[in-house]
Simulated scan of single mutants.
Amino acid sequence: MLWKMVLGMELYPRIGKSFDIKVFTNCRFGMMSWAVLAVTYCIKQYEANAKVSDSVLVNTTLMLVCVTKFFWWEAGYLNTMDIAHD
């Protein structure tokens, strides 16, 4: 409790009762940005070379699978030990 007074910040800052800033920045913004960037790089490579290399295609596919899995199990992710401890 003393560290809150010294630093003047909360562990889980909120706006109102339902908007959690930490969840938004880590989950929504961060994970969605990762997916959008992966697809954008594929598009850029296609525009530059008229094809997408196998390595970029596999990397993008795996990233999209990871992001999809994250959003599918988001409630479980927020209850994991590293997030709860963080």
Rank of each mutant, 00 (worst) to 15 (best):
L2G: 08
I15T: 09
E74V: 14
P13K: 12
T68V: 01
I83H: 09
W34N: 11
N59G: 10
F71N: 08
S18F: 03
D86H: 10
S53N: 07
M81V: 14
M32F: 01
V36A: 10
C42R: 02
I43S: 03
E10M: 10
F24A: 09
M31W: 04
S53W: 08
F19P: 03
Q45N: 06
V39H: 02
C42S: 09
M1L: 11
N26I: 10
L62Y: 07
Q45M: 11
T40A: 15
N59A: 15
T25N: 11
M81R: 14
F70T: 08
A48L: 12
L7C: 14
V65Y: 11
T60Y: 06
M81T: 13
D82T: 13
W73K: 12
T60M: 05
E47G: 01
L64C: 02
Q45A: 08
M31I: 01
I15Q: 10
D82W: 03
N49C: 09
K44L: 14
I43N: 03
E74W: 03
M81W: 07
F70V: 05
F19I: 02
K22I: 06
F24Q: 07
K17D: 14
Y46V: 02
L57Y: 12
L78H: 10
K22D: 08
M32Q: 04
V39N: 06
M31L: 02
T60E: 04
W73T: 13
M9P: 04
V39W: 00
K69Y: 15
M31S: 01
C66W: 15
A38W: 09
S18W: 06
C66I: 15
S18E: 10
Q45S: 01
L62E: 02
N26M: 13
L37Y: 04
E47Q: 14
I15Y: 14
M63R: 00
I83S: 02
L2M: 13
S33K: 00
S33F: 00
M1F: 07
L57A: 12
K17T: 14
F29D: 05
W3E: 14
V67F: 05
I83K: 06
Y41H: 09
A84S: 11
L2P: 02
E74G: 05
F24I: 07
D54I: 12
A35E: 07
S53V: 04
F24T: 07
D86T: 08
A38M: 03
K17A: 13
V52S: 06
V23I: 14
W34G: 10
Y41I: 15
V39P: 02
K4V: 07
